[in-house]
Simulated scan of single mutants.
Amino acid sequence: MKKNIKILFNIFYTFYRVIRESKFQTDLELINDSGECYILGNGPSLKYYLEDNLDFLKKQKTFAVNLFVKSEYYEILRPNYYVLADPNFWLFTGLPNKIKVEEDTLSTLNEISRKTSWPLTILIPYAAKKYFAIFFKNHEFIKIVCYNNTVIPVEGFDSLTNYLFKKNLASPRIQNVLIAAIYASINIGFEKINVFGADHSWTKELFVNDDNQVGCVDDHFYHKETPSLRLYTRYDGVNYKMHELLRDFAYMFEGYHILKKYADYKGAKIYNRSKGSFIDAFERKESISNDNI
């Protein structure tokens, strides 16, 4: 009896969240692409794949994320899609410990606007639509497309979850921008999705300083200098506690398993081509040149 009540409650709560938070007309369903794509995460391992496979990737359909535009590879690869998910890209707090982050995100948008001279679709949560519409107003090459990032209960509701994902009314918990990029690539219609630079190995580099602040080594493929140390802060500027950070990491890694189940439902294949990646949800294929793809 209790189990049935819980099921009914979760179904009711799911529809409540969708009706309250989701937009029933996004632009994501209007994009129709297919075949194979390459999602470029910003982890350190991406540098070596770009160096070895640049000519190949220049001919493929690619997704960039976050600060990829700050790399010289942006104008070389000319990605088809750019995915953003972090509220720091459209909500600016002005908090003292957020200044560096917000300067980086604003400069990222400025660089995208300045450097992009080819058709580019930027994929963002619906909450960011107004800001991005103004920021990129009248840009000759940039198109803004929104996705719903409504989080719903998923355990035990595969049929309902897959239906809402397919209709772009909900998504896995987007704890990391790669979750948004993979989710969007599935719904756009790609049948073969290759993920690079998804190292996700931050737990090896976590530290707690003498003030009990949690941080890690901040290393990305585009860094030319020695990676810096950074503290983990939430959007509201409050420092993460270790248990909060590890809980969010758990949500993130669970999200990849949810995407794997959704990809199976849609008949899509996801390959993790990131050397040393901590993601355990997708089939591993680390090379391009020897894969005959």
Rank of each mutant, 00 (worst) to 15 (best):
M1K: 08
K2S: 06
I7Q: 00
F9C: 02
F12Q: 05
T14Y: 01
F15P: 04
F15S: 04
V18I: 15
I19H: 04
R20T: 12
F24H: 12
L28N: 05
L30Y: 08
I31G: 04
S45R: 04
K47G: 04
N53I: 07
D55I: 04
F56A: 06
F68Q: 08
V69S: 07
L77S: 05
R78N: 09
V83L: 02
D104I: 14
T108L: 00
E111R: 11
E111L: 15
R114K: 14
W118Y: 12
T121Y: 01
Y126F: 12
Y126M: 06
F132W: 09
A133Y: 13
H139E: 13
E140M: 10
F141Y: 15
I152D: 01
P153R: 07
V154K: 05
G156T: 11
F157N: 01
D158C: 00
S159N: 11
L164R: 01
L169P: 03
R173D: 10
I174Q: 02
V177M: 03
L178Y: 02
I179C: 03
F196R: 03
G197K: 03
D199R: 02
D210Y: 08
D211K: 15
D218P: 00
L231V: 12
Y235R: 05
V238T: 15
N239G: 12
K241E: 14
M242F: 12
L246D: 06
Y251M: 06
M252H: 01
F253D: 05
Y256D: 02
Y256N: 00
H257N: 10
Y265R: 00
I270A: 01
Y271E: 06
R273N: 11
E283W: 06
R284M: 11
R284S: 13
S289A: 09
I293N: 02
